[in-house]
Structure formats: C-alpha cells, structure tokens
C-alpha cells in the first residue's frame, strides 16, 4: 500500500517542481499549491497507512479497542494544510502586487532587487 502511495508522492513532487520552474508566476503558484499536497502526503504515508479506522476513541472506552490510523502525522498535517493555504494566499497576493507594480508576471523580467546592469560598488572609505 505504501509503495503505491510513494510513487504517487513522487509524481506529485515531479509535477510541482516542473510547474515551479516555469517563468510565469501563476504557474509557479500552481506548483506551490501542488507542493503542499505532495509534502502532506509524504508525511501521511511515512506514518504508515491504515484503512478506514480513524484515531477516535469510542464512547465509554479509555483507549481505542483495536489498531487505528496513526494520529501523530494527522495532527501535523492538519495544521500544515491551513498554514500552506494561508501561505499560498499570501504568495498569490504578492505575485499579483508584483504584477501591478512591475507590469510583468515573467520572473526573468523582474530585476528590481538584483538589477542586471548594476555598477560595481565605489572604492572609497
């Protein structure tokens, strides 16, 4: 079971990285969205898989009667999902604002922080 999920995780990573290596911000954003899922699945799978038994203790019991899915990766992923979403929203707004200010969504043309033809620093004290 984990083997198949591993291959799926590999595909998720490959697709997200291919999208991120695009020149256009919107595809990079899509890549980042996929990357979040890829990482979440990675954590989920590495905590081992268990079909259909959620880590919930039935009423009246002190511990689950039988084996359940691993709760630890679930707790980690739950917060990660929300964080990666708010992060994605921030990046989207950032990309949009960059587009507004710079008039381009091509990252090769975005050279404000590192201009291509910058002079060497002056030699003085």
């Amino acid at each position: 079971m984990e083997g198949v999920l591993s291959i799926l995780v590999g595909i998720f990573f490959a697709v997200s990285i291919y999208l991120m290596m695009s020149r256009y911000t919107i595809r990079i954003m899509l890549g980042i969205a996929v990357l979040g899922n890829a990482v979440n699945l990675l954590i989920f799978t590495s905590g081992r898989l268990m079909r259909e038994v959620p880590p919930i203790i039935p009423v009246g019991e002190l511990v689950p009667p039988g084996p359940t899915a691993n709760p630890l990766p679930q707790a980690l992923i739950l917060t990660a999902i929300v964080i990666s979403f708010s992060f994605l929203a921030f990046l989207l707004v950032l990309a949009y604002r960059a587009y507004q200010e710079l008039g381009t969504d091509d990252i090769v043309e975005m050279r404000v922080a590192e201009p291509a033809d910058e002079d060497l620093p002056p030699v003085s004290y």
Partner: peptide, 29 residues
C-alpha cells in the same frame, strides 16, 4: 485511510484555494 479530520480540512481548503486562485487569475495571465 482513516483521517476524516484531514479530509474535511483538505476539502475546505481546496474549495477556498480554487476560489482565491480564480479571483487572482482573473488578473494574471
């Protein structure tokens, strides 16, 4: 695989993501 909490959260987040990306994408090419 036994993670209803995650599933719910993921459903909600995907819905919101799609809406937000749709809102932004109107402006980006």
């Amino acid at each position: 695989f036994g993670a209803p909490d995650l599933s719910f959260t993921q459903f909600m987040v995907e819905t919101l993501s799609v809406v937000i990306i749709a809102l932004i994408m109107n402006r980006l090419s």
